[in-house]
């Protein structure tokens, strides 16, 4: 499923490592990290005290989420392929993963905000 998602945007890489070891792991990991981040924002901090609940805080979290989404993809791909430096395909992959992270985080936000107390209407 993730393979299809990534390859839709960046095409196939001849190296099967991407399909076998990178796409699914990175996609799943990104999904989980975004869920965790959103849960952290909405269900943990957002229920604890009204200290980190504003739209500006949300945007900060989103930026961090996107940084994670991007760097996770790069580092994972570099690691799996053993390349010493990232190539253009990896940047494309990281870009798509950033998009994926964005979608998941925003989606998770829409989902989790109902469970929040102080961030129930952040940022919507």
């Amino acid at each position: 499923m993730f393979t299809a998602l990534y390859e839709l945007f960046i095409g196939k890489n001849p190296d099967p490592t991407y399909r076998n070891a990178v796409f699914t792991s990175v996609g799943t990991l990104t999904l989980l990290i975004m869920l965790v981040l959103a849960a952290l924002f909405y269900l943990l901090l957002g229920r604890w005290r009204a200290v980190f609940h504003r739209t500006s805080h949300w945007i900060l979290t989103l930026v961090i989420a996107l940084i994670i989404g991007f760097s996770l993809a790069i580092s994972y791909a570099k690691d799996a392929t053993g390349e010493p430096s990232a190539d253009s395909y990896m940047y494309g992959f990281a870009g798509v993963n950033l998009l994926w992270a964005l979608i998941v985080f925003v989606g998770a936000s829409a989902l989790f905000r109902r469970g929040s107390v102080y961030a129930r209407h952040t940022p919507f």
Binding site: A50, R54, V117, R120
Partner: peptide
């Protein structure tokens, strides 16, 4: 007014 309770 930006707070959740107000928006709610």
């Amino acid at each position: 007014l930006r707070e959740s309770f107000a928006k709610s």
